[in-house]
Amino acid sequence: MKVLNIGDLSIKLPIIQGGMGIGISMSKLAAAVANEGGVGVIAAVGIGMFEKDYARDFIEANIRALKREIQTAKEKTNGIIGVNIMVALTNFSDMVKTAISEKVDIIFSGAGLPMNLPEFLTKGSKTKLVPIVSSGRAAEILCKKWKQLYDYLPDAFVVEGPKAGGHLGFKREQLDNPDFALEKLVPEVVSHVKPFEEKYNKNIPVIAAGGIYTGSDIKKIMDLGASGVQMGTRFVTTDECDASRAFKQTYIDSKEEDMEIIQSPVGLPGRAIRNEFIEKINRGEKKPVKCPYKCLKTCNFEKTPYCIFAALMSAMKGNFNGGYAFAGSNAFRSSKIISVKETFDSIIREFKEAVSVK
């Protein structure tokens, strides 16, 4: 595998661990991935829900929690640490400002186009800005707007395909459409970004995400022009993943037919592992709940049948009566819980085997 360069950051292995919320990828997983030469990523979404004063002081609880997780990760590694911050968060600006003030290496931002992300950079800041997009057109729009408004170009792009876990940036009918497959999206984004690289003499690597599970998958997508990959699902069933053992076990126990596309309360399709909680939703048995704070801009909490944040946090803790697990399309391939180091060793071995096949 080639080294991935994002600005002046040199990433030994071109593997970025996906930012998985709520509480799935925190400092423990991120530091372990960074120690193996990849990019460890902390998910900012709902990070304050673990604080006692979350309902009373939503803003401060999230800021405090993010600061602590970044600092804890940095104490455990000298590697590269990123933060995933969804544009759809109502506290998006506070999370971005906090990540930059804590000198995080990279901010990954999707669930909407982060049109104003560069405005939060402070003088002397070295934090890299990497939008997550689902089309070449979106990448081009961001390049144009950022250059026009801030004289700044994205340091890289993550292009996320329809096989990813969690909320998806596609319409439901696009998920199985070959025209929106990751294998088509990667060359498309690369071609839209290339003119900006050439005009402004700046390297803007494209990182592929969604459905990438093995080293062979990495080789295939890099042969199509990706400079690196983002992987989430593969790292869930590791010792260091911050989720409960019960959460990890639901991946191991799942079958391919259990991977279900649901309609999230936030108005987007999402991929999850089917369980009784989801079945109750489908039967219309869940009722709206009170919301202590409007966490997501797109959530109509007065009409939604359940709180997506509460459901994901319950699952993370192993309570599947109150929630469900988001998962990528390959979650059913998980067979056992191993260390992050063993996971990297396996991925590298798979990659080398794929390279040797002629």
Score class of each variant (00 low, 15 high):
Tyr306Cys: 05
Glu69Pro: 00
Ala164Thr: 10
Val236Ala: 09
Val159Lys: 06
Ile47Cys: 14
Ser244Gln: 13
Asn203Leu: 09
Val355Ser: 12
Asn91Cys: 08
Gly165Val: 11
Ser191Pro: 08
Thr304Pro: 06
Ser93Tyr: 03
Ile218Ser: 07
Phe180Asp: 11
Ala111Arg: 01
Ser346Gln: 15
Val266Glu: 12
Ala272Lys: 05
Thr214Gly: 08
Glu60Arg: 13
Asn84Ala: 12
Glu257Leu: 03
Leu296Ile: 12
Met115Ala: 07
Tyr54Phe: 13
Ser135Ala: 04
Phe326Leu: 15
Asn201Lys: 13
Phe332Ser: 11
Cys299Lys: 04
Arg271Ala: 06
Lys280Cys: 02
Ser27Ala: 15
Met86Val: 08
Ile204Gly: 07
Arg333His: 10
Arg56Gln: 14
Ser125Thr: 04
Ile70Cys: 06
Cys307Met: 07
Phe157Asn: 05
Val39Ala: 10
Asp105Gly: 05
Ala73Lys: 03
Lys144Val: 12
Gln249Glu: 15
Met313His: 07
Lys303Tyr: 11
Glu183Trp: 06
Ser216Leu: 05
Val190Thr: 09
Met316Arg: 14
Cys241Asp: 09
Ala31Ile: 04
Met86Leu: 14
Glu69Ala: 05
Asn91Phe: 04
Pro162Asn: 14
Cys143Arg: 01
Gly323Phe: 03
Gly21Gln: 12
Glu51Met: 14
Lys28Arg: 15
Lys220Arg: 15
Asn282Gln: 15
Phe170Lys: 11
Gln17Gly: 05
Asp258Ala: 04
Ser10His: 14
Pro187Cys: 09
Ala43Ser: 14
Lys74Arg: 15
Asp258Leu: 00
Phe58Asn: 09
Thr127Glu: 02
Lys194Leu: 14
Asn35Arg: 02
Ser10Asn: 12
Phe50Pro: 00
Ser356Tyr: 13
Ile24Tyr: 13
Ile212Pro: 01
Val190Ile: 09
Glu257Lys: 11
Ser27Val: 08
Val41Cys: 12
Asp155Trp: 00
Thr72Met: 13
Ser109Phe: 00
Ser109Ala: 03
Gly328His: 08
Cys299Ile: 05
Lys97Asn: 13
Lys76Arg: 15
Phe196Cys: 02
Cys143Ser: 04
Ile207Thr: 08
Asn62Gln: 01
Ile207Ala: 06
Arg271His: 09
Phe301Arg: 02
Gly211Ala: 11
